[in-house]
């Protein structure tokens, strides 16, 4: 199952982090299924804690066009932070190439460093749609617009597979709203006004 390759240039490493119960594992699973459909090889690992609600939660994806030699993240292309509890836990995995997406409302202190930080109103948007718990899907829409690792069609199909029928319309709306968040800001990420990485 493994091949003799180091980190391939086209590989992507993505982490979803936040508080248990925010749907981070679901986000990663949906993206993993969509990526599989679009021809990526996927490795999905998660921070697995005894408590499923409230504590630090993370879910990691490594996507490769080839064979994945080492399946855990070593250097993040994208870090999603949906709650302050996940704000500092992943800083050592960030580089100047990293994109950090933070929820504007629930993350008051994003990690500061030479990476790009994008503050997005995921929770606020989800609340406006009628269910704050779809903030993860809003974020997924935004992530897709910022770094198109898979097609919208694949992501939509994966969402349909994972979400119950009575919630699918709400989630599709959330996905679209997330993508719209980026087109509103013209996809321009805000460089963090920050000192050098710790």
């Amino acid at each position: 199952m493994t091949g003799e390759t180091g980190r391939v240039g086209g590989d992507r490493q993505i982490r979803f982090s936040g508080s248990g119960g925010q749907g981070l594992q679901l986000s990663a699973r949906i993206l993993a299924e969509a990526a599989l459909h679009d021809g990526w090889s996927v490795a999905h690992s998660q921070g697995y804690e005894p408590t499923s609600r409230g504590g630090l939660s993370r879910s990691d994806l490594v996507l490769s066009r080839g064979v994945i030699d080492y399946p855990l993240v070593t250097s993040l292309d994208v870090l999603v932070i949906l709650d302050d509890v996940g704000a500092t836990a992943s800083t050592s995995l960030l580089t100047h190439r990293s994109l950090v997406i933070v929820d504007a409302e629930r993350v008051t202190e994003p990690p500061l460093g030479p990476w790009t930080v994008q503050r997005l109103a995921c929770t606020a948007t989800a609340r406006r749609l009628g269910n704050e718990r779809t903030a993860n899907v809003v974020c997924l829409g935004a992530l897709l617009a910022l770094t198109p690792v898979c097609t919208v069609d694949s992501l939509t199909a994966a969402l349909r597979d994972e979400v119950s029928a009575k919630l699918i319309d709400l989630n599709l709306e959330a996905l679209a709203a997330g993508r719209a968040l980026i087109s509103q800001t013209a996809g321009v990420a805000t460089p963090a006004a920050a000192p050098a990485a710790p």
Binding site: M1, A32, A43, Y48, L72
Partner: peptide, 11 residues
């Protein structure tokens, strides 16, 4: 190990 047990991979 737990890592491999809980890992999801494309197979």
């Amino acid at each position: 190990d737990e890592t491999v047990g809980h890992l999801v991979e494309t197979v």
